[in-house]
């Protein structure tokens, strides 16, 4: 343990709390204001009369239950495909030596570096030609592939920690490779698998670029897009927008806080161990 001086620790933590929490304070306070007070100048720091009107409005009039459901469907689909395909690839990379393995792993890593704006235009054209523009399937395919390299990488790290002798022992007992994976490996990497699934879910939940370019119909748009589209309307209803940002953040915040340890291991595992 380092032993930084007390005043240093207190100062840093104080500033950290101020910077980190002030915007959240502003979101909560604004979302509880009535429509007229929220555009008052200078702004009140806490509503004179708090109301949950804004939350009721976005839920009843703005279609947010639908956007919420869309985000849930898209993100779950992404998490499912990315982890399912990912777990097989991770096992393959972890357990076999084969021709072209290094090249394939390099492709995997490199594909993580490609910027979304490079891919989304041509992907949009591809989808239009395949008749998949403005469908959740087209969006889910894109998002699951974007999250795939990370899923494979993270899962490989977890599978690597299980000695291959265990696989051999199970196969001597007559298990097939597939059975080894499902009955021996997966139960042993459950925490890692849960973290991977969650992370893919969260990446999909936070996406806006791909949804913006691939989804047109309001009935299929996710939360992020729904909040963004609130600016295109006749008036900018800040109380409702702030309420919507809070709703859009609630699920990811809870999941991230629960799983942060695993995520750091996934990203930085190899660097820690050395």
């Amino acid at each position: 343990m380092t032993r930084p001086r007390r005043p240093f620790v207190a100062l840093i933590l104080g500033l950290m709390l101020l910077y980190n929490l002030a915007p959240f304070y502003w979101v909560v306070s604004s979302s509880l204001k009535p429509p007229l007070e929220v555009i008052d100048f200078p702004a009140t720091l806490w509503p004179r009369q708090a109301t949950v009107e804004a939350y009721a409005k976005i839920w009843q009039q703005e279609g947010f239950p639908v956007y919420f459901l869309n985000s849930l469907i898209t993100s779950s689909g992404t998490a499912l495909i990315s982890s399912l395909v990912g777990v097989f690839a991770a096992y393959g990379f972890s357990r076999f030596a084969f021709r072209g393995k290094l090249a394939l792993m390099a492709i995997l890593l490199t594909s993580q570096m490609l910027p979304g704006v490079l891919l989304v235009g041509p992907y949009f054209e591809l989808l239009s030609r395949a008749g998949l523009y403005d469908t959740r399937l087209g969006l889910v395919l894109a998002l699951s592939t974007i999250t795939l390299p990370f899923s494979v990488w993270m899962l490989k790290g977890y599978i690597d920690t299980i000695p291959p002798e265990i696989d051999q022992a199970a196969m001597l007992d007559g298990a097939s490779r597939l059975q080894v994976l499902t009955k021996v490996i997966l139960p042993n990497v459950m925490p890692g698998l849960v973290a991977t699934v969650t992370f893919a879910f969260l990446l999909a939940w936070g996406d806006v670029l791909w949804a913006l370019c691939l989804i047109q119909d309001q009935a299929r748009q996710p939360m992020t897009l729904g909040v963004l589209k609130m600016f295109g309307q006749f008036r900018v209803e800040w109380a409702q927008i702030m309420a919507a940002t809070l709703v859009a953040t609630a699920i990811p915040s809870c999941l991230y806080v629960l799983l942060q340890r695993y995520l750091v291991q996934g990203f930085a595992g190899s660097a820690i161990k050395d």
């Binding site: 690839a89 393959g92 699951s144």
Partner: peptide, 23 residues
């Protein structure tokens, strides 16, 4: 091994590789 890593590689080539080359 190719059965295990194949689906991932195919998906990457189709959804990321193809658009990247197209770009």
């Amino acid at each position: 091994p190719f059965l295990f890593v194949g689906p991932a590689i195919l998906l990457l080539l189709a959804v990321l590789g193809l658009p990247a080359v197209t770009a």
